[in-house]
């Protein structure tokens, strides 16, 4: 089979941008697991909220980027409320417990979204229609912007965790939460902070992805399985692993659909199963201490 190199080129860019979205979503899930040992499916809810808020603010003000900022803020706020009201009470329990609870939150949240925005899918206008010429291929600039945002977020998260004392404390708590607690550090606050960062990033992901899809209440569920795969392949609790696996899955989905569309949706699962067979904790999964 011969492939048009221009198609391949645009497909690679497409894969990078969708990988960027996966990364923004998966990083929160991964950090929350690493630190609090919870599986926070409700991140997908903040993703939907981010997209809807971006839509509404965009319609009201005509300002797309203002909408994205508001979407990220809304994701952060919603996650703050959820952490305070619900997750606080279940940190001590088994991870699967949090998985069920967060699934309930995701579902209930979808209900709320339906209540507020209705079930009709909403289009969000692409902020820039500019194209960009790479080796004779027209690449939409907006896709590159998404990739750029993902890269910046990665850098910021990295700097936060490696260069600030709070970030270092978070890493220390991922290593051993009891030792951090024993020093008289308020790990509850570290938990809240991490959860809110995750929620805001999910909101951001929803906002920036909104122009490329139709914003509808079920968008979170559609994304769920892919984010899962990214997190599993990367290994729960690893930032680098999450980034690498988001990159891989993005390319598999986009290049795969170039080769044989129906298989593209499935290929990531096959990869995931294969990786789990070789390494049951994912590519970069942290060795977990029992709590």
């Amino acid at each position: 089979m011969s492939l048009d190199p221009r198609l391949v080129m645009s497909s690679v860019i497409f894969g990078l941008s969708i990988g960027g979205i996966y990364f923004l979503l998966a990083i929160g899930l991964s950090l929350c697991f690493g630190l609090m040992r919870i599986i926070s499916l409700d991140q997908l809810l903040y993703y939907s909220i981010g997209a809807f808020v971006t839509y509404s603010v965009g319609v009201a003000t005509g300002q797309f980027w203002l909408g994205v900022a508001a979407g990220a803020a809304a994701g952060g706020l919603a996650s703050l409320a959820v952490e305070r009201l619900i997750f606080r009470r279940i940190y001590a329990r088994d991870p699967t417990f949090s998985m069920i609870t967060s699934f309930g939150l995701l579902f209930g949240g979808i209900g709320i979204i339906k209540f507020v925005w209705g079930v009709v899918p909403r289009p969000v206008e692409v902020p820039t229609l500019a194209q960009f010429d790479v080796l004779g291929t027209q690449i939409p600039v907006y896709r590159l912007i998404i990739v750029g945002i993902a890269v910046v977020v990665y850098a910021l998260i990295w700097a936060f965790l490696h260069r600030t004392i709070v970030g270092k404390a978070i890493r220390a708590a991922i290593e051993n939460v009891e030792h951090v607690e024993g020093l008289g550090i308020n790990v509850g606050r570290l938990f809240t902070l991490t959860f809110v960062i995750a929620g805001a990033l999910s909101g951001l992901a929803g906002g920036v992805y909104a122009p490329l899809i139709l914003v509808d209440p079920m968008m979170g569920l559609e994304m769920l399985a892919f984010v899962f795969m990214v997190v599993i392949i990367g290994g729960l609790g690893s930032i680098k692993g999450t980034a690498i696996s988001a990159l891989i899955i993005g390319q598999v989905v986009s290049l795969g659909s170039l080769i044989y569309a129906p298989a593209a949706q499935m290929a990531p699962f096959v990869i995931m199963l294969a990786i789990l067979l070789i390494r049951p904790t994912g590519l970069f999964g942290v060795a977990l201490t029992r709590r």
């Binding site: 619900i86 279940i90 609870t101 309930g104 209930g108 209900g111 339906k114 209540f115």
Partner: peptide, 16 residues
């Protein structure tokens, strides 16, 4: 008519 809303929060309620 809003099944998700109900079942979602019912689940959270059960868990808590």
């Amino acid at each position: 008519g809003n099944w998700e809303l109900f079942i979602g929060f019912l689940l959270v309620f059960i868990m808590l």
